[in-house]
């Protein structure tokens, strides 16, 4: 019954296992640089939203880093699809598209959670106290699922590597910088604020930050995240069906 899900996950995790050291090392560097530059650089002198900047920053880094990882399966899917045609093995097998999407999404979530754990380790080094409760887990699972399914959607829609790079440059990277990961979006001019609140990462970051720093979680934002997750799950299914055009 779940053999499609299992198969996809077996494949992705086994490939990951062989590159794990390199991948984890590579993905651990950029959040560390941010922490050194902005966390230590600004020190305790800067407070944002009533929090020391580094305490404000770490949840933002978690949102960013886990997004990078779970959305990042798009690139891997691209390679398996266009260069090695491995994806055809999934399409030929007697398994449903739902299982393929869920299997890939689970892999993206796994990678996102791994990078989250890494930043938790950094937070200990930088002696930042975080509250890790059930609401946080709900938030990070929704967050990584929604960006993994967005990644699947994009990977199935683009025609090649170049397209993929274009999407990253013009959509993903600006989103990462504008969605309140490094500064509070409420300081933005009104026009920008509208734009930024249309991006799913803005809601994710707010919810993740609130849960980790003991603030109030805005349930509307969590609901919006769930909405995005459901929408991207459906677009991913639609995009796979389109591959069979």
């Amino acid at each position: 019954m779940f053999n499609g899900f299992q198969g996809v996950l077996y494949r992705e995790l086994n490939v990951f296992r062989k590159r794990a050291k390199k991948q984890i090392l590579a993905s651990s560097l950029s959040p560390l640089l941010f922490l050194i530059a902005f966390g230590w650089g600004f020190g305790d002198r800067v407070a944002v939203d009533g929090l020391p900047y580094i305490t404000f920053l770490i949840p933002g880094l978690i949102a960013m880093s886990s997004l990078n990882q779970s959305y990042g399966i798009a690139l891997e899917l691209n390679i398996t699809r266009f260069y090695f045609h491995v994806f055809d093995e999934f399409l030929i097998a007697p398994i449903s598209h739902v299982e393929i999407v869920l299997g890939e999404a689970a892999y993206g979530m796994f990678k996102g959670l791994l990078s989250t754990a890494l930043i938790f380790a950094y937070s200990i080094i930088f002696s930042v106290k975080l509250v890790i409760g059930p609401m946080f887990f709900l938030a990070i699972l929704t967050h990584t699922f929604l960006f993994a399914t967005l990644g699947i959607t994009i990977a199935m829609l683009v025609r090649d590597h170049g397209d993929q790079a274009t999407v990253n440059t013009f959509v993903i990277t600006p989103m990462i910088f504008l969605s309140g990961t490094f500064f509070p979006v409420d300081k933005l001019p009104a026009v920008f604020k509208w734009l930024v609140y249309a991006l799913p990462l803005t809601h994710s970051t707010k919810v993740i930050r609130a849960t980790l720093t003991g603030g109030d979680v805005n349930m509307l934002y969590l609901l919006l995240m769930t909405g995005f997750a459901a929408a991207f799950f459906l677009t991913a299914l639609w995009a796979i069906r389109r591959v069979e055009g």
Partner: peptide, 17 residues
């Protein structure tokens, strides 16, 4: 799958089917 061994390639197929 270039990154998998021969055995793993076949094992993947056995799960999918």
């Amino acid at each position: 799958d270039r990154d998998l061994t021969a055995y793993e390639n076949l094992y993947l197929h056995s799960i999918l089917h």
